[in-house]
């Protein structure tokens, strides 16, 4: 579903992603772990082009989301690359509409009520009429138990409520994959569970998920595959049992000792 090839990214001359590859299959749940600053957020943000990679490609459902990387298509002329993009490319807005994102700090639209947050994108993008969008939104809100908050503004909600609504907002676009960037890291401990429960439900429902988190319990329970990132590369990869049970690198062993 999502394929990342030779992805590289620098900020101010500092290398953040070192040409990494990763594949996320349809319906797969991948948990990405790693120390702070290792490039986990940057990887997710490059997948939906919130950051523009310096090199490499991101493919979504067989379509190229980034500009074609000449290094990955040796021998192709400029015009051939252009034609390649025209044939296999996917417009960034279209790609984002099909791949939702949940942020650490929720980012609910502060100037809108919950319901407006949920219906804005589907209506603006012509996916649904206002009535249809509202119906979907209310159904999904009910599923996370927040129907009574539909007319509230985000400022009046708890962190856990905000994050559950942020997840619903992404779901209202009926995405084919969801990216989570530390969805519970900004929450008070007692609210972490309610958000993880929603995510577990989604996982059961077959959603394709890439989740950056420090919640090891969640990773163990939900992940089909765990990626461990260190200094801009994926250094460990496998099932949770493999990666947690017998990490190959000292860095990963160290990290798991601290967080487990």
């Amino acid at each position: 579903m999502i394929s990342v090839q030779k992805l590289s990214k620098q900020f101010d001359g500092k290398v953040i992603l070192r040409g990494l590859d990763c594949e996320i299959a349809k319906g797969e749940k991948v948990v990405i772990l790693g120390p702070s600053g290792s490039g986990k957020s940057t990887l997710l943000r490059c997948m939906n082009l919130l950051e523009i990679p310096d090199g490499g490609e991101v493919w979504f459902d067989g379509k190229l989301v980034t500009a074609p990387d000449p290094a990955l298509h040796p021998g192709m002329s400029r015009s051939a690359l252009k034609a390649f993009r025209a044939e296999h490319g996917l417009d960034e807005d279209a790609a984002r509409a099909r791949m939702g994102m949940v942020f650490q700090h929720f980012n609910l639209f502060a100037n809108m009520t919950v319901l407006q947050n949920l219906t804005l994108a589907p209506v603006e993008l012509g996916r649904k009429t206002a009535a249809e969008a509202e119906e979907t939104a209310l159904t999904l809100l009910d599923r996370v138990g927040l129907t009574d908050k539909k007319d509230e503004y985000p400022a009046r909600l708890s962190g856990g409520q905000k994050q559950r609504i942020a997840i619903v907002r992404a779901l209202c676009m009926e995405p084919e994959a969801l990216l989570f960037d530390e969805p519970t890291s900004a929450l008070d401990p007692e609210m972490v569970g309610e958000v993880l429960d929603v995510m577990k439900d989604l996982a059961k429902g077959g959603m394709t998920m890439a989740v950056v988190t420090h919640e090891m319990g969640f990773a163990r329970e939900v992940a089909d595959r765990v990626l461990f990132m260190d200094d801009g590369s994926i250094t460990e990869e496998g099932t949770p049992a493999e990666v947690f049970g017998s990490p190959k690198t000292e860095r990963a062993r160290d990290f798991f000792r601290k967080v487990l």
Binding site: L50, D93, R96, R98, A121, E124, M173
Partner: peptide, 11 residues
């Protein structure tokens, strides 16, 4: 983050 959330939805 407000802009990013909007763009991430495909707006």
């Amino acid at each position: 983050g407000q802009t990013e959330a909007g763009r991430a939805l495909g707006l």
